[in-house]
């Protein structure tokens, strides 16, 4: 690979003391591997799969992030069981909306970035630090965003200093904003936000937050054709991640199935759902 053609020794760039950022190391040493360094032909637009709706809800002592499983390409369903919520390290989750290929590459890079920092510095990065690192990666993608390949992630994590779950949203220019209580991004986000506004209770328990997230996704899928609803036939359920003082984990498919089935049962003959 990059270990120099003439010998197997580590290239001198590896031995330069300094940055504990993997992205900075890549941009100096292997810039072609960075998603933001790929030039696009001017004026070209292309159809690529897009991820759709992500919702995030806080609860007492943590935060829940959930995403539907659909990726669309125009009117086509490009993928019906895509994962769009990822654990980025021990205490954080990221969900992605926008161009799926770029977004997944970005998450991969972000995951390595956090682990790299942890290994080199011997300590975890602060939650704000992680949110800012993600912002700078989005900023690097602005050129592609202007040609229709936008990536809009949402970041949520447990703040070990403040002992609470926190949510950060982003815009295509890399703007990073802290959100309170709940937030949603993606094509179905308007409907999901409306649902969460009505369902959210401050200081609710984790289980209630999971229910709110699943129900908000249900509402998003109800009104947005690009958001996938729960697929009872194929048993494809939303991805639901939880992060609290114990760390980040995923709710198992069986548990999510139970929540989804409860939502569906409650909505029979009552399409508006809970009041």
């Amino acid at each position: 690979m990059t270990a120099g053609p003439e010998s197997g020794r580590l290239p001198s760039a590896y031995l330069v003391p300094g940055s504990s950022s993997f992205t900075e190391f890549l941009s100096a040493h292997a810039p072609a591997l960075l998603p933001s360094r790929r030039p696009l032909p001017p004026q070209a637009t292309l159809d690529a799969p897009h991820g759709t709706t992500i919702v995030t809800v806080t609860f007492r002592g943590g935060v829940v992030m959930a995403g539907d499983r659909r990726a669309t390409m125009g009117n086509i369903i490009a993928n019906r069981d895509m994962e769009k919520v990822f654990a980025t390290d021990e205490y954080s989750l990221v969900g992605i909306a926008g161009t799926a290929g770029l977004a997944i590459e970005l998450v991969r890079l972000f995951q390595v970035e956090l682990e790299h920092y942890e290994k080199i510095e011997g300590t975890l990065m602060s939650l704000e630090g992680k949110a800012n690192r993600l912002a700078s990666m989005i900023r690097g993608n602005l050129g592609m965003a202007m040609q229709g390949l936008a990536v809009v992630p949402m970041f949520a994590g447990y703040d070990l200093i403040e002992d609470r779950g926190r949510i950060f949203s982003y815009d295509v220019t890399g703007g990073c904003y802290e959100e309170h209580d709940h937030h949603s991004v993606g094509s179905g986000s308007l409907f999901a936000r409306g649902a969460m506004k009505k369902l959210y209770r401050r200081d609710q328990a984790a289980g209630d937050a999971v229910r709110v997230a699943v129900e908000a996704l249900y509402d998003a899928a109800d009104d947005d054709s690009a958001t996938g609803g729960p697929d009872v036939g194929r048993r494809i359920w939303p991805t639901v991640g939880v992060v609290d003082a114990e760390g980040a984990r995923f709710v198992t498919d069986d548990e999510v199935a139970g929540v989804v089935e409860a939502v569906i049962a409650d909505r029979r003959d009552n399409p508006g759902g809970a009041r």
Binding site: T88, D89, R108, L114, E115, F250, T252
Partner: peptide
Amino acid sequence: DSPRASSTNPQTQRDSE
């Protein structure tokens, strides 16, 4: 211990399950 173990790669994060 924590789920960090099963968490750091989009392609592998849910393997354990």
